[in-house]
Design a binder for these strands. Structure first.
Lengths: 208, 208
DNA sequence: ATATTAATCAAACGATTGTTTAAGCGATTG
DNA sequence: CAATCGCTTAAACAATCGTTTGATTAATAT
């Protein structure tokens, strides 16, 4: 059976993702976790301490799994093409080894921090985002035409990231507009869409 | 001088965008607006009524301006190319006739509703999003290769929309990574990036 | 078995939440 | 002048917020 501490983290992660930091009360968290209110100050100091712990112990770890599944996709290809890199990137974020629910939860929490950074963002950025972008940059650099700047390469990665986030977060709008569920085969088509969508600048463009 | 009602709407719009619905108290709104707490129930019934009014009177109107600036870009071209449509779309969203601050505010409020819909989303979707997507679809349909499905065309629009939202919301991360401010010339480069980024599927792709 | 530590609990704390009340204001109307 | 109106106000409301307290139970060590 799970410890009280873990049950609180499970519940808090879900509720923070759904409603945001101010949208959830500590009592809702502890009630759903089946424990006492005082447990939060006992294990995490206070509410903000709980929130930061969710990032430190849950999000950064999950993000590392996403990244390792990215590198796994590229294994064997010792000089992957830009298309292979982009597909691996899209797949890693949209087909990471989590349940659909877990992935949505993960991206919601990140999206909140990205659009309104707190102390949690600092943790996440230095530990996860920055080193990954660095590695990605080195990987893409080789295939770039002469005129492409570093800024442009970074924008490619950010554009992919943007789509992954948005397609996850705007499920309601997405299904309302397309009429399709966001199920496995649709996600596969989404990935190929992102790849196709992303290749023009590197491969097909006629320069600026 | 502005009426109390308008001052409340101004302040509420800004604070709801910054902190979200639960993140702001009615007293913070009225204090900053320089009026009494009771004014909210007097003019808007309650807090939620104020939030919905922000969407009804502010966001939908602003969204209509964005759309009309999109159609203005395409004026004269009676059969615009896909590149022209995409550029007009990106420009309308990133260079709409608002201040930078106003545009950021606008997108933050929408992003919140998209990732966690309330009643406000229904208003916004039926009044603004749905008819615009319909018109866009008719505009793009002409240039599509044989194999492209309607789903795919919708994904193109959503991918552009995703980037606009993300580049606006993730300013902190964007400047942290690229080292550039999100100023006018950078936004111009962003628009061209989005256009280039978006054309492969329609023009350059070799099919599926 | 006893002493010590860890974990959980109900209850209460003061502060803040959204909302309502009733009195008061100046301007307009009869 | 008196009455009515739209509007603003301070004060109070119950409810909920995050946090703390002190007692009680469970687990571990001596």
């Amino acid at each position: 059976m799970k410890s009280t501490r873990e049950k609180i983290l499970d519940t808090a992660e879900r509720l923070f993702a759904e409603k945001g930091f101010e949208g959830v009360s500590v009592r809702e968290i502890t009630n759903r976790a089946g424990c006492n209110v005082a447990s939060i100050s006992y294990y995490f100091g206070n509410k903000k301490g709980l929130y930061l712990t969710v990032f430190r112990e849950r999000l950064t770890e999950r993000a590392r799994k996403v990244q390792s599944s990215f590198w796994k996709e590229l294994e064997g290809h010792n000089n992957p093409s830009s298309e292979e890199v982009i597909r691996a990137l899209a797949r890693a974020f949209l087909k990471s080894p989590f349940s659909e629910k877990e992935r949505l939860l993960h991206h919601k929490l990140i999206a909140r921090e990205v659009s309104r950074p707190t102390e949690a963002f600092e943790i996440f950025h230095t530990e996860v985002v920055a080193p990954f972008f660095d590695a990605l940059f080195r990987l893409l650099k080789r295939h770039i035409k002469g005129t492409t700047t570093k800024e442009e390469q970074l924008l490619y990665v950010l554009s992919i990231f943007a789509q992954v986030m948005h397609f996850n977060l705007s499920r309601n709008m997405l299904t309302a507009i397309t009429g399709k569920k966001l199920d496995e085969p649709f996600i596969d088509r989404l990935i190929e869409h992102i790849v196709r969508f992303s290749l023009y600048g590197i491969k097909g463009g006629k320069g600026r």
